[in-house]
Write a protein that binds this DNA or RNA. Structure first.
Length: 537
RNA sequence: GGCGGCGUAGCUCAGUGGUAGAGCAGUGGACUCAUAAGCCAUUGGUCAUAGGUUCAAAUCCUAUCGCCGCCA
């Protein structure tokens, strides 16, 4: 009834394709990868809960000179190197309880097939000016292997790339993509769909960049062997970005445009990216897609980066945070909750482990965990754990209705926040209900009702358990593990544990279930060790 | 160097012309179902600085300082 998303899922053939970037496995996964995984997963779980069919993708981008060199340094083959490195990213997704439906590796045969097919289509296509989209040219310029990027002489700073990476003079035959011819189409597209690039500040940057004029893009290399061969062009392999972007199509059976998955999931609903790669996703990728006659993704959303303790994370400062270690210490759900609640998605944030622990205690243990514990303990103690029947509307008093109304009133704003990826706002709305529920416990004082033998007691406890079920559904995208535990404790049937059932105006919980005694959802952490010198490593 | 953003309570931030706000942290109180949690109350800010416009400025304008982003 309430969600703004216009199409009811049941009648909509379109699914939601949600992607993270495929990560470059030249180093261990870091906090930024974990952040993006979590954000994508929260959204995917949210849309599934609303009844939509979701395809959530992540993976690794395994080609390029940098990978080949790292492998050579280790004295192993590139394939052995990426096999080992890619596994860490797969582990990270699992560690974070990410519900990805697939994990794309660009070294897989299916991806080679898709990437080469994409190239062929691109090469056979024509730009708006009537010329071929791909042409053979000659490249002479500076190349930074670390950035996998070409730079012009004027872009160099002290003889190095703007990023500080060393560059080498490179002269070779190369295929170009006629990006310059797509400038007007791109501008028209982004002006027609203002939400296609978010946040707005990134959109403005992209538009400004396009307006200044685009130059054609070198899309093949000859000096590199670790890559996907360009079809019918011996000696050429695809530039790593040309290859990598196609991964989003690989997963949906490209080049088979008639396949059910392709039909269902393209165009992608959302590419989540770091702000460092928006140009690839907002200029090159849409242009290439238009070139082969495919729609650009509906939205590219650039998330922010973390700093730590007010400084950029770097190994030399020693403030690098290992996501595996954090999950080991606090659990996946606390980690997920912290990064989703503390920061405005799309803005940079200062990641501080002490704040994570603080938030775990104050919001998860004290507010939510204790609400659950006190409610279910009283149910256990006063009513032998039996869920009371849902009362007739006439028996509900002002306080009951006020709490239930607040919950349902916040729902439209919750949906809006979720669809806008304003996760912290969604959680704030949920917490209003949690706070109200704790106030409700105090004002209704079930312990007094019990002493008085009041008929109000089962009503109040049923309202509380129902609100807990409600909260568990809204919070499942953020904290799937803990909320599953809560739902098991409440004996919420799995077919009721979603946003479709929640908006049905029917109580979520079955009457009369007998619940087991509760166990604390989020045990409190001892914070006395924070603020002192040494964290244990 | 150009363009843009930001600078508000100890911390994270909301607030774009009309009496300075929220959460967390701190302090006090009443309660006791609960993870010594929760609830109620409360301390705390010359809104970066200096000018200007206005009856009225955190909000609009100018300059300066600091941080950040994009571009060159």
């Amino acid at each position: 009834m309430t969600p703004p998303p216009a199409k009811p899922a049941a009648t909509s053939p379109k699914g939601c394709l949600i992607t993270t970037p495929i990560y470059y496995p030249n180093a261990a996964p870091h906090l930024g990868h974990a952040y993006c995984d979590v954000a994508a997963d929260v959204l995917a779980r949210y849309y599934r809960s609303t009844g939509q069919t979701v395809l959530l993708l992540t993976g690794t981008d395994e080609h390029g000179q940098k990978i080949a060199r790292a492998a050579a340094d280790k004295g192993i083959s590139p394939q052995a190197h990426v096999d080992e490195q890619s596994a860490h990213f797969r582990d990270l997704a699992a560690t974070l309880t990410m519900s990805n439906d697939d994990f794309i590796r660009t070294t897989e045969p299916r991806h080679h097939h898709a990437a080469q097919a994409f190239w062929r289509e691109l090469a056979a296509s024509h730009a708006p000016d009537g010329q071929s989209n791909v042409y053979l040219g000659h490249y002479a310029g500076w190349y930074s292997a670390r950035d996998e990027t070409f730079f012009q002489e004027s872009e160099l700073v002290d003889g190095k790339a703007p990023t500080g990476a060393p560059v080498e003079w490179t002269e070779e035959a190369t295929y170009y993509f006629r990006l310059s011819a797509w400038q007007d189409r791109l501008l028209a597209y982004f002006r027609q769909y203002p939400d296609a690039i978010q946040p707005a500040s990134r959109r403005n940057e992209v538009l400004a960049f396009i307006e200044r004029g685009l130059t054609d893009l070198s899309i093949s290399r000859t000096g590199v062997s670790w890559g996907i061969p360009v079809p019918d062009a011996p000696g050429h392999v695809m530039y790593v970005w040309t290859d990598a972007l196609v991964n989003y199509l690989t997963a949906i059976d490209f080049p088979d445009r008639d396949s059910q998955r392709f039909q269902q999931f393209w165009p992608a609903k959302l590419h989540l990216v770091g702000k460092d790669i928006i140009r690839f996703h907002c200029i090159i990728w849409p242009a290439m897609l238009m070139a082969v006659g495919l729609e650009p993704p509906q939205q590219v959303f650039a998330h922010g980066f973390f700093i730590s303790g007010g400084q950029k994370m770097s190994k030399s400062i020693g403030n690098v945070v290992d996501p595996f270690e954090l999950v080991r210490r606090y659990g996946a759900d606390s980690f997920r909750f912290y990064v989703m609640s503390e920061f405005a998605f799309g803005q940079d944030g200062d990641f501080q482990e002490a704040n994570l622990a603080q938030r775990h205690n104050s919001m998860l243990a004290n507010d939510l965990g204790n609400l659950s514990q006190r409610s279910l303990s009283m149910l256990q103690r006063y009513l032998a754990g039996t869920v009371p029947s849902w009362p007739d509307a006439a028996r509900l008093e002002t306080a009951d209705n006020a709490l239930l109304t607040l919950a349902s009133q916040n729902l439209p704003a919750y949906h809006q926040a979720m669809t806008e990826l304003a996760y912290h706002r969604a959680l704030e709305l949920i917490w209003q209900v949690i706070t109200a529920a704790n106030q409700y416990v105090d004002t209704q004082a079930p312990w007094s009702l019990h002493k008085q033998g009041s008929a109000r007691l089962p009503i109040v406890l049923r309202v509380l358990t129902e609100v807990l079920a409600w909260l568990s559904v809204l919070l499942t995208p953020f904290m799937p593990g803990s909320m599953a535990a809560l739902q098991a404790n409440l004996q919420l049937p799995s077919d009721r544990a979603n946003l479709v059932a929640l908006t049905s105006h029917q109580p979520l919980l079955p009457d009369g279930a007998t619940l087991m005694p509760p166990t604390p959802l989020f045990p409190r952490l001892d914070l006395s060790t924070f603020g002192k010198d040494g964290d244990d490593a």
